[in-house]
Design a protein around this nucleic acid. Structure first.
Length: 866
DNA sequence: ACCTCCCGCCATGCT
DNA sequence: AGCATGGCGGGAGGT
């Protein structure tokens, strides 16, 4: 199997040659690169080091260098060394070169530990692949090659890949070979994880733990018991862990071998860890808490110290990778006890995927069944196929929760992986914060600089960063959801979401479905989906974690320590702040990059509290949807689509965002369905949705077809940014800024997204967007995408598109709609409906509030690396 | 001294 | 048996 697959897919792109120092080019080069076949599966050898160092790893090395240069931390070191950093992203290559040449020895000789950090390594790794790879192209990853190129032992690559796999950003093809999916499925995955996390009651568990802690602090006596219980409770019982690895439809493990350990740690731990962020209100999770919960699950009771320590070690490993993905950022939570290391979610806000397609997958038979519309079914199905009843182990504290949860758990806990695929709708925009502040920021900056040379406003930079990052994710998610599923309804909302609020939106998006904007969105909806759409609200009432969530929230807030509450509220804000980071190279677009140390800004989400509440509701709703959708889509699986969809989604989002202005960026998006459709982003959006929905999955499904499509990213092409996201982000940024008063409405920052011009928030004044353009995005695109582009695409098309700008709006409607959506206030209409609206509004509000507040500090201090 | 977390031994399990 | 995976925890770098 493996081999076959392997052979089948090679990717031209990747490979490669990395040697070339170009990072950005990486993409391109990658694409060009070779094929890996050679290495094929067979090879084993690992240790890259061989070349060691000396070599120029090219891209990665460059990245590193860059990063290091950028990041304060690294920087210092580098300086010592004398490395030169180039800020400009592009420069990296140069750096690399230089480094290689001159620096290598030095560096290599003394690579500091930081330089060898998993986070940095992960950045390098990520730099090799586009965020949104063209499905058409082979996106194979040969572990040996990567290890060599990055000059690390293969073992390290496994660490990275395992985490990426948990997010479905890669999937194993065969021995030594993985397929890169990038962020196409990310939103979906996150939505699914969120759903699963809710089902597992992680929020509750977190609360319990915190509670215990507090109690302990205050009353030492109590806590102990409680905690234990809690943990146990959480865990699930039976050993079953709560859940096995959560798979997505399209991305299941193909290699049998992988399956064997599928349920094992790093992957599962990573998913669970992410779930904790997604379900917790503040979205800040301390390592200690995470470790307790994770341990609990595994073995409820035993918490040895050693075990705890090991868990913590692993969590650091995971956190480093997640940070590189800009999904989380390190912060410190100050509690009465003292400061505790913790991580804050800086990824996109996600709405739970309700149904997600995913679930289906896991279940196998049940899946089909599951699909039934009933909410209940859906929920159950999603989570588990069957489950175990066990739950309650401990009475005391837990029971309460358990009783409630038990049902869910049972279901959820299903051993197999439940996957839900729902899409998340949410948006995720949020952020892309730099995970590690320094490093990421640095990286981002570099990239940004390189890529865009665009100047950005100071504020903008922040925004930008966030924007780009966020946008991407969120968008994706949204997109994905839409695309994929039937769930489309959600999508619609999404569409909306993207609109203006991007900032908020990132958070908000999720819910949307109902959409306030209904109308416009509706259009996007797929036919079938549409049906679904409506129902959703009603549907979902299903489970509601709300209570728990609420509780959680409250706890969290409190937990955080005294201050925390404030923090919670603020935190979001914080993220928002300008400085955000964009760590990601990808995004680069960010304009400036500033890295702020803090990095937090993220902003993206703001919606936390509100979101959570509303979100849950939404989720419920979603679930309902899911069910519905499921019904609608029999196929359910869509899996393939997902990926494709993701693209589409992205494009969509972007387009939406862009749509506002559209501008410059025109990307070409391929519609899965159609194949490639060059559209402008704006257009894309509109178009894509429809197409997706309408079109069928089929199109999506076949990769090839997809391939044909230029995929949005291609754009990367040149000019445009591959990702739409940026736009949103920019919008968000602008929005935020405006709210904050930093910027006048008129002014807008473009995140990078090129086009940028989005009308910001409706509410706000209309801002005109200035398009900075998507520099960031571009940058990102370029880097990452480039490969793809080069490869696949058809570039021609895309190019053409690009050139034009807009081209073809496939669906005019979309555009219009988009516009509308932008303007629309998120909240309004929706709210009534339910959560979706709520979320939206809330999000916005929150965000706004946050924005304003942002400066406050939360308890949490972001730290960079330390 | 503590926080991080790199490193690589070695178990596991597929081929 | 050989090799790919990856759990695991010692112990070192950083602060």
């Amino acid at each position: 199997m493996e081999n076959e697959k392997e052979n089948l897919f090679f990717e031209p792109h990747k490979k490669g040659q990395m040697k070339t120092p170009l990072k950005e080019s990486t993409a391109a080069s990658i694409v060009l690169a070779e094929i890996q076949p050679d290495f094929g599966p067979l090879t084993t050898p690992t240790k890259p080091k061989e070349t060691s160092q000396g070599e120029p790893w090219t891209p990665t090395a460059n990245l590193k260098m860059l990063i290091s240069a950028v990041s304060p931390e690294i920087r210092n070191r580098d300086q010592k060394r004398g490395l030169v950093s180039n800020r400009n992203g592009l420069p990296k290559p140069k750096d690399c070169l230089h480094e290689h040449l001159s620096g290598d020895e030095c560096e290599k000789s003394q690579p500091s530990r930081k330089e060898k950090s998993l986070g940095l390594l992960c950045h390098k790794f990520l730099a090799r692949y586009p965020n949104y790879p063209n499905p058409a192209v082979n996106n194979d990853i040969c572990l040996d090659e990567v290890a060599e190129e990055l000059n690390v032992e293969r073992r390290r690559i496994y660490d990275i890949v395992n985490v990426l796999e948990s997010l479905h950003m890669v999937s194993r093809l065969a021995k030594n070979r993985y397929t890169w999916h990038g962020r196409h499925n990310l939103n979906k995955t996150l939505g699914t994880l969120k759903s699963v996390g809710e089902e597992n009651k992680y929020a509750e568990q977190i609360m319990m733990i915190k509670k215990k802690e507090y109690e302990q602090e205050f009353d030492f006596s109590k806590s102990c018991n409680i905690e234990d219980h809690v943990t146990k409770a959480n865990t699930d019982q039976n050993g079953h862990t709560d859940m096995c690895f959560v798979e997505l439809p399209g991305v299941e493990f193909r290699a049998a071998s992988v399956n064997s350990r599928k349920d094992k740690s790093l992957r599962v731990m990573s998913q669970k860890f992410v779930m904790l962020f997604l379900v917790s209100t503040p979205q800040i999770v301390s390592l200690e808490t995470a470790a307790k919960i994770l341990i609990g699950e595994d073995h409820v009771e035993d918490l040895d110290k050693s075990k705890f320590k090991t868990k913590i070690r692993r969590l650091y490993d995971i956190a480093n990778v997640l940070s590189s993905l800009d999904l989380i950022k390190k912060v410190h939570v100050t509690e009465e006890r003292g400061r505790k290391p913790a991580f804050k979610w800086t990824g996109p806000e996600i709405s739970p995927n309700p149904s997600g397609v995913n679930p289906v997958i896991s279940f196998s038979t049940s899946d089909v069944e599951v699909r039934q519309p009933s909410k209940e079914n859906c929920a159950k199905n999603l989570f588990s196929t069957h489950r175990k009843p066990n739950f309650t182990r401990h009475p005391s504290l837990i029971k309460l929760v358990k009783s409630i949860e038990s049902d869910r758990r049972k279901i959820n806990s299903a051993p197999s992986s439940p996957i839900k695929t729902s899409k998340a709708e949410s948006s995720q925009n949020s952020a892309p914060f730099p995970s590690k502040m320094a490093q990421l920021a640095a990286i981002c900056k570099m990239q940004l600089e390189e890529q865009s040379s665009e100047p950005r406003k100071k504020a903008k930079p922040q925004l930008v960063r966030s924007g780009p990052c966020k946008p991407v994710a969120p968008l994706d998610s949204a997109v994905n959801a839409e695309l994929e599923l039937p769930a489309p309804p959600l999508i619609q909302p999404l569409g909306v979401v993207p609109l203006f609020p991007s900032p908020l939106s990132s958070a908000v998006p999720v819910i949307l479905p109902q959409a306030p904007s209904g109308p416009s969105y509706a259009i996007y909806l797929q036919p079938a989906q549409t049906h679904t759409m409506t129902p959703p609200q009603g549907l979902s009432p299903t489970v509601c974690p709300n209570p728990s969530s609420e509780a959680t929230r409250s706890k969290d807030c409190t937990d955080a320590t005294t201050e925390k509450a404030a923090n919670d509220a603020t935190k979001p804000n914080v993220s928002i702040r300008p400085g955000s980071l964009l760590p990601m190279p990808e995004r680069h677009g960010a304009q400036n990059q500033d890295t702020e140390p803090a990095g937090e800004r993220g902003s993206k989400r703001a919606s936390m509290l509100e979101d959570s509440g509303s979100k849950k509701k939404f989720k419920e709703n979603l679930k309902g949807f899911e069910n519905v959708s499921a019904t609608l889509f029999p196929s359910g699986y869509l899996i393939p689509l997902t990926q494709c969809s993701s693209l589409g989604a992205e494009s969509l989002l972007s387009s939406k965002e862009n749509s506002g202005t559209l501008s410059p960026n025109h990307r070409i998006y391929s519609s899965p369905i159609a194949g490639v459709i060059p559209v402008t982003s704006s257009e894309l959006t509109a178009v894509n949705f429809p197409s997706f929905h309408v079109t069928p999955l089929k199109l999506m499904v076949s990769p090839t077809s997809v391939a044909a499509i230029p995929v949005g990213n291609s754009p990367a092409l040149s000019s445009s940014h591959p990702i739409p996201v940026q736009n949103p982000s920019s919008a968000i940024v602008n929005f935020t800024l405006q709210h904050l008063g930093l910027i006048s409405p008129s002014v807008q920052v473009s995140a990078s997204s090129g086009p940028a011009t989005l009308p910001m928030s409706p509410r706000i004044e209309a801002v005109s967007v200035v398009p900075e353009h998507a520099g960031t995005q571009q940058g990102r695109a370029t880097r990452y995408n480039s490969p793809g582009l080069g490869q696949n695409q058809p570039n021609g098309q895309s190019l053409a598109m690009m050139g034009t700008q807009q081209p073809v709006p496939v669906t005019p409607k979309g555009s219009q709609l988009v516009a509308e959506s932008f303007f629309r206030t998120p909240g309004g209409p929706v709210k009534s409906t339910g959560s979706p609206c709520m979320d939206f509004d809330g999000a916005n509000k929150t965000s706004i509030g946050t924005l304003l507040v942002p400066q406050r500090k939360l308890e949490v201090s972001t730290e960079d690396v330390h």
